[in-house]
Structure formats: structure tokens, C-alpha cells
Design a protein around this nucleic acid. Structure first.
Lengths: 114, 114
DNA sequence: TTCAGACATCGACGTCCGTCGATGTCCTCA
DNA sequence: TGAGGACATCGACGGACGTCGATGTCTGAA
């Protein structure tokens, strides 16, 4: 590391994201950082009823039912999707609050230069 | 998969994210889906000058210089950071367009129900 | 020309992740 | 009660990821 007291450049100023905050938000991004899961959330969120059952989601991908179920579990565990069982079928819906939390990350007040 | 023609629920409607679009955006989210990289972008973006040199970033973490350099390379390769060498020091700055692309993902028109 | 420092790269290690086939659990209907 | 379907879980496999110490490359100063 560099010697203290020898400032090579302007010190990092202002209030950046704390380590705890980063540890809290990163899992949300990690859950979305997969093409399949991104499409899953998009499919569910863009459906007319705001929800989708697993059977339809399975048909939208060339993947095993076990894999889709795994991805849905990851999204649900991260708090991005709600899960509701109705009869034989299971319906997933997007949690708007979770998405809003991520959207807040990219507000001008958080990251953009000004 | 389920039999076609047997609709158990409302079909997925509207224009969701395409597979190509998902494959294109996921790497951006994956680059940010790490607490260290999230803090790096935040530190750089929140600095007064809008940029930061590696020596200062090293001091902000309890990690090896090699590890920080690796994370910066990931962010730069993803197109999230710009890199400029000035003398002995290297300065990284945030690419606003990349962040805006991600922010667009979470607009109400893209994912939110309404 | 030589030296010291800033940063990148390399090779290695343990761990996590995406995917699969097989199997289990729960619900509905006959 | 039994059968069949929808979905979850399990165990396994190959590949990617985060981190490190060691080393390489480049720059400015003596």
C-alpha cells in the first residue's frame, strides 16, 4: 500500500457506499446477474396479470424444469419474487420494493458524478 | 414440459426482454454484483473530481493490490469504468452511459408492473 | 544508467455457480 | 385409494469466480 501522508491525488471525498450497504445490495444484483434470471423477472413482470406460473416459464426456456425451479428459488430467496401456490400450480410475481431498491442505486444522488 | 393448448394460466404477454438483450445486460450486472466492486464504483463516482487513482482505492480495502487491480480490470472490461494513465499513476472514472443503461432496466416501462 | 515505486499480469488454490438426471412431495381427479 | 401431473429437492459434474503471493512492466528521479 502507499505511504500515508503522501497524497498522490485528491482524497476520496463525500459519502460513498458503506461496506455494510455493499454487502447488503450485492446479493440482489448477483441474483439478477444471469441472463436466464433476468428474463424470468422480465417475463413475470411484463405479463398482463403481473404474475406467471412455473409451467409457462418452463416453456419459455430450453432448460430443464429443475434448472428453472432452481433459478426461481434463487430469485425468491433474494427477495425479488413472491411465491404463491394455487392448487397444483405455483405463481411467481415481482416484488416492486426489491426492484425499487436496486433502482435507487443508480440515482444521480448515489453514483452519478453530479 | 406442459402440453400445448392447455393454458393453465394467462399467457406471458407483451414485449419482455429478449434473450439477446438479457445476454447483453447480464455481464454488466455481474460486474457490479460484488461488494468490493460495488464500493469501488461508488468510491470513484462519489469522489470530488469524479475519478480516483489506484493507490487511494487500495487503501480503502483490506485486500491485496493484485485483488483490487483484478476488480478494476473486471469493471473496466465490462465498460463500467474508464482508465487513464497519468505519469506513474492510473486514474479510473465511471462511465455514466454504462450506469444509465443499467438504470434503464429498472424503469417502470421495463420491469415494474405499472 | 540505475533504482524505487505504481500498477498489471501470472499461476495456483479453494469455493461458489449453472446445469443436469433422478427422485421426492403435494395436489387433484376418478 | 390409487394414478398422474406440477413443482421442489438432491447429488453430481464441469466451469467460473475471488483471493493470494510472486513476478513483470513501465515511469520518474537520482
Amino acid at each position: 500500500m502507499s505511504d500515508p501522508g503522501l497524497a498522490c491525488c485528491t482524497p476520496l471525498s463525500g459519502t460513498a457506499m458503506s461496506a455494510e450497504q455493499a454487502e447488503q445490495v450485492a446479493p440482489l444484483l448477483k441474483a439478477l446477474a444471469d441472463p436466464v434470471r433476468l428474463r424470468l423477472v422480465s417475463l413475470i413482470g411484463s405479463s398482463a396479470s403481473g404474475e406467471a406460473c412455473v409451467c409457462d416459464l418452463n416453456d419459455a426456456f430450453e432448460l430443464t424444469q429443475a434448472t428453472i425451479s432452481h433459478h426461481l428459488k434463487v430469485l425468491h430467496s433474494a427477495g425479488l419474487l413472491d411465491r404463491e401456490k394455487r392448487g397444483v400450480w405455483v405463481y411467481y410475481s415481482v416484488r416492486p420494493a426489491a426492484l425499487a431498491a436496486i433502482a435507487g442505486l443508480f440515482d444521480t444522488t448515489a453514483l452519478a458524478p453530479a
